[in-house]
Design a protein around this nucleic acid. Structure first.
Lengths: 230, 230
DNA sequence: TAGATTGTTAATCGATTAACAATC
DNA sequence: TAGATTGTTAATCGATTAACAATC
């Protein structure tokens, strides 16, 4: 008996949708921000390991990354007791643990959909590969016959999507299609059993609970920067 | 009289660096998250304007974007009174106001430094242009003579950085160089008077207070997605 | 006027930080 | 042991949400 909600979009049928953030791990709720920092810790640890450091304290880590030491300790404590009081954290051990927690200790199979300018660049972008993400294949609607694209990655016609995803047991997709195609392609990915999408399309997508989606919105990043420069 | 801090990095000399977030506008502190949402409102309004909508309520906007209506009203109220009680917000007016507030009502001159895979893609990425950002020129250390790069944008040798930035009154930079070069290039950009950097390099940069910097870390986005898929 | 929706204050929720007992 | 640093609880801070008087 509140408002009348003229044309509610599919899925959300509530008057107000509170923002979700974070996911649970064996009961406790882990804030999304913690996960992002976990990746940063893992990266810093990688560098420390390269420098043959044996141990690191929460305050050293915090200085390296610009957080407080309490935050470092608290973040890590979500997942277990990795430190030694009076000593700090063993670098190699902690790094191994973080990689296991993040799931980056094994290679992850990824598909990319939409081989335009941005898609092509991401195919050859070294940053993903370096962190253990393997873009196995790509799809585009403009490709008539399979061809080899940037970085030697095969590009198939979008019609082969379901077949190839199953073939390579791909659980991850990078979405770089047009705004118009985004929802339809996402639906197909989800139906094909994908579990996470990294979405570069500036469109809010309807996805079921169990599919995790992250938005990377380049124009939005620029716009908010723009605000600060006056 | 706490820890001894062996080798403190330049710049930060405090034991713990609390995370900044947000910036002030005539006294009041505006959370960074508000600014991001402002961009989303502006974009939704653009679409509503295209559909010839004359008015929009906070609850319609909230449904479109997945927030609560209270949040929409509160965010907008930071900057003024744009709505009419019992009616809603006039679409065109609100959009104009938001664009003015974000600074996207005028074209913004941008330089891109580091014309590798990612850099090249961003040169031809339509998303920036569409939102009024104009990549005026690019720089790379591997370019001996000026040449025309992707999307017809001139690419100069990095040595011409200072000269060209001044020439075109560029206040914005996109950073897509290597991790090794990042800090040095950032220093030059800052010395040349740039006021904001969109940084794609996965390295924490030391920047003075008055230079705004945003990090876009693609590998990190993937890694945190990876966490949720087990 | 009656109905709807704003702008804003107060209540709630969640995340960050400080502090310190436990412990190596 | 003395010194250092963890893991964790309590205090603080900030952001989101609910509620409602003001107002078109």
């Amino acid at each position: 008996m509140t408002a009348k909600r003229p044309k509610a979009p599919r899925g959300t049928s509530h008057p107000d949708t509170p923002a979700d953030s974070g996911s649970s791990l064996d009961g406790r709720k882990i804030p999304a921000a913690v996960i992002k920092r976990l990746s940063l810790y893992a990266r810093a640890l990688q560098e420390l390991e390269r420098q043959q450091a044996e141990k690191v304290s929460s305050s050293e880590l915090s200085r390296l990354l610009g957080f407080t030491s309490a935050q470092v300790r608290k973040d890590l404590a979500y997942f277990g007791q990795f430190g030694v009081p009076g000593f700090g954290y063993p670098v190699g051990d902690l790094r191994r643990n973080l990689r296991r927690i993040l799931g980056t200790d094994r290679e992850l199979q990824v598909a990319l959909v939409g081989v335009g300018h941005l898609g092509t660049a991401l195919l050859s972008y070294g940053g993903f590969t370096r962190q253990g993400f393997r873009i196995v294949c790509a799809f585009d609607k403009e490709v008539s016959a399979p061809r080899i694209g940037a970085a030697g990655i095969p590009v198939y016609h979008i019609d082969e999507l379901e077949k190839r995803l199953a073939e390579h047991a791909i659980g991850f997709a990078i979405l770089t299609v047009s705004s118009e195609a985004a929802q339809a392609v996402a639906n197909r990915l989800i139906a094909a059993g994908i579990s996470a999408i990294l979405n570069f399309v500036p469109v809010r997508l309807q996805t079921p609970e169990h599919v995790k989606i992250h938005y990377v919105d380049l124009a939005l990043e620029m716009e908010s920067l723009s605000f600060y420069t006056r």
